[in-house]
């Protein structure tokens, strides 16, 4: 069976400074994988390179066996919350509908059936009651759920999420994890940039330890070892684990 995500020898440089060095990664279909690593390890860059948002210096990426452009409609993306202007004059429903713009194609506007879909997506993240709110009135966790709903409505086979659990409240974290797990059980592949090492083993099946290079990847039980964490974070991490 073809891998959901295949990254070969991926090197990405920013102004001649390498941000990712020679990354190889295979993510099988139906896997929920965390990407962890220190700040500046290239986690976001990896996601962006997979999505073709950044041009790699070398290497290639295949999603479902094809280049990204050919399978874009099967890929859902949840960017970091901080990347957009939340004072933008638009409603929650509108933001979710943006997930359908790719499918709608040029010129066509979202109609009633699309709106229904958007409400359904909002229901999944428990935000249907907020559909007509202006987005600036939402809390951080609510904003994250809206972004998640926008990805869910894409009905993709592969999801890439950048720090969806960063700075959200406990209820939202729980809700998001439930959604991630239900996505996995319906056979979707989800790659999640994650920052909280304590929860990696409870939330995820597999993990990629990243620090410019790929330190390790695979099932959490095999890859998420003290040695690998030490290599990823430069030894500092041992303290945190001992304190547990």
């Amino acid at each position: 069976m073809v891998n959901a995500i295949e990254v070969r020898d991926l090197t990405v440089a920013y102004r001649e400074r390498p941000v990712l060095w020679d990354i190889d990664l295979d993510v099988a279909s139906g896997v929920l994988m965390a990407v962890v690593g220190p700040n500046g390890a290239g986690k976001t860059t990896l996601i962006k390179a997979i999505l073709g948002l950044m041009k790699p210096a070398a290497g290639q990426v295949r999603i479902l066996g094809k280049p990204y452009r050919n399978v874009a409609s099967s890929v859902g993306y949840v960017p970091q919350r901080g990347t957009v202007d939340w004072d933008f004059p638009t409603s929650v429903l509108d933001v979710v509908l943006m997930g359908l713009y790719g499918r709608l194609g040029w010129i066509r506007r979202p109609g009633r059936s699309e709106r229904k879909e958007a409400i359904a997506a909002l229901e999944k993240v428990d935000m249907a009651g907020f559909a007509h709110r202006q987005i600036s009135q939402l809390s951080g966790g609510q904003r994250q759920r809206v972004f998640l709903a926008r990805a869910l409505i894409q009905d993709a086979r592969v999801y890439l999420m950048d720090e969806p659990l960063q700075g959200v409240d406990a209820t939202t974290e729980r809700a998001i994890i439930d959604i991630l797990h239900s996505l996995r059980s319906s056979g979707k592949t989800v790659l999640v940039v994650h920052h909280d090492l304590q929860t990696v083993s409870t939330y995820f099946d597999e993990v990629l330890l990243l620090n410019v290079r790929r330190i390790a990847s695979g099932p959490v039980s095999e890859a998420f070892t003290d040695t690998n964490l030490g290599l990823t974070y430069g030894g500092r991490i041992a303290i945190i684990k001992d304190a547990q």
Partner: peptide, 15 residues
Amino acid sequence: KLLAFDPEFAHSLVL
């Protein structure tokens, strides 16, 4: 609208 609100997401939709 999408360009003004979230250009990266627009990019991910291969717009």
